[in-house]
Simulated scan of single mutants.
Amino acid sequence: MEKEEFIYLISEKMKLVRVEQSFSQDKMSEILGISKKTLVQIEKRRIDASWTTVVAFCALFNHSQLLIASIGDDPVDFVQLIASNNGGMPKEKTMGGKIWWKEIECSGDFRLQQNLISNHYRILDQYDYRWHSSFNREEGLIRLLELQELENIEIEKGIEE
């Protein structure tokens, strides 16, 4: 998913999340730091939210079930993935991909998964820590092999010592 597609998706969901959270338009515009007029324009789908508004929205409403279900992943993680130009993510604990994820390939203690909603990829270790995220399958497969090679080198070093 490209940045523009993500902005469009979040813009579409803003009204639903506002209603889910029981906020008035006045309160939501105050929370997001935008004018009520701008919020109304977004909700009526006359304009898309700005990238800054989308980032703030995802950060502030990252626990919204509607938002999570729309993306299939933590909204803040998704913003970081887009902002980092599809690069690697910091290592962090995940829930392991029981929902919204399918296994693409396993290699040693690592597995490549694809999100069923957004179609982005991630690599998790056997403890469900995220090592890499990308929109590119080939990039994910290459990183999976690199991680496996590093793991093999560490195992060999341990045997030699």
Rank of each mutant, 00 (worst) to 15 (best):
F78E: 05
G87R: 15
D73L: 07
G87K: 15
L60H: 11
N85W: 04
H63K: 15
N86G: 11
L81Y: 09
N86E: 09
L66T: 09
L81R: 11
V79I: 08
C58P: 00
L60A: 06
L66P: 00
A69E: 03
D77G: 14
D74M: 08
F57M: 03
L67F: 07
D74H: 13
L67M: 06
S64T: 10
G72V: 04
A59R: 12
V76A: 08
I71L: 04
N62A: 11
S70F: 00
I82F: 14
I68L: 09
A56S: 05
L66D: 07
N85L: 12
S70A: 11
I68H: 06
P75C: 06
N62S: 15
D74Y: 07
S64V: 08
V55Y: 14
F57E: 02
Q65A: 00
I82P: 13
V55F: 10
V76S: 09
L60K: 14
S64C: 12
G72E: 03
N85R: 14
F78H: 12
A59G: 05
H63V: 08
G87D: 12
L81Q: 07
C58D: 01
C58I: 03
L60T: 07
D77F: 14
S84V: 07
V76L: 12
N86D: 15
L66M: 11
Q80Y: 09
S70V: 03
V76P: 06
